[in-house]
């Protein structure tokens, strides 16, 4: 079955098609959720609710551009929405270099990296993810999160400094892998 057929079946609320679609994309999307969330459980919650949203909105997908890209956007937007509340406290803008070099052990585990991302304060984490993995510009990030470009920049560099420090000291608050 082609992905187009699968999507069309999902549009008809065919539960089998929905399951197949989920199974196909869940692993990739779960890794996205893990990066954007504070922890494993929260990531699963986000994945669950975001997929419900995807099935609800799938009739809006018009086969323009890649479906995976569409799903990912829905998921990221959903997660952002969960953190986009007034708890964001504005941080005083600081001047930080955009380029951050880091020294690390070759053996550094992806679990450790995931852990330290998740430990970032919410907005640092979101800005970092959007910038590093989604290649969003600061303007785009500012729009997505409802913050200023300056805040976005400063959040990003703060995030990188925290990560750098943790990598170099190898001091995630827990060394146990957080992926499971």
């Amino acid at each position: 079955m082609t992905i187009e057929q699968l999507i069309n079946d999902c549009k008809k609320n065919d539960i089998k098609a929905q399951e197949q679609l989920y199974k196909q994309y869940a692993p990739k999307m779960f890794s996205v959720c893990l990066k954007y969330s504070r922890n494993y459980t929260e990531a699963q919650d986000h994945l669950q609710e975001a997929f419900l949203l995807i099935f609800e909105k799938i009739h809006l997908f018009e086969f323009k551009g890649s479906f995976e890209g569409w799903i990912k956007r829905v998921i990221i937007n959903y997660v952002l929405q969960q953190y986009r509340n007034k708890t964001f406290l504005s941080v005083i803008d600081e001047d930080v270099a955009d380029e951050v070099e880091v020294e690390f052990d070759d053996e550094i585990s992806i679990e450790f990296l995931m852990k330290i991302i998740q430990e970032l304060p919410d907005r640092y984490r979101l800005v970092f993810n959007l910038n590093v993995f989604e290649n969003y510009s600061h303007q785009e990030i500012a729009d997505a999160l409802g913050i200023t470009v300056g805040t976005s920049k400063s959040n990003l560099s703060r995030a990188k400094m925290i990560l750098k420090e943790k990598i170099e000291n190898n001091t995630g608050s827990a060394k146990m892998p957080s992926i499971k």
């Binding site: 990066k35 380029e99 951050v100 070099e101 690390f104």
Partner: peptide, 15 residues
């Protein structure tokens, strides 16, 4: 063995 790299690259490659 330790290595030095731009932090963006480190994460992008790893993930």
């Amino acid at each position: 063995m330790s290595e030095r790299k731009n932090i963006n690259k480190l994460f992008q490659e790893k993930f």
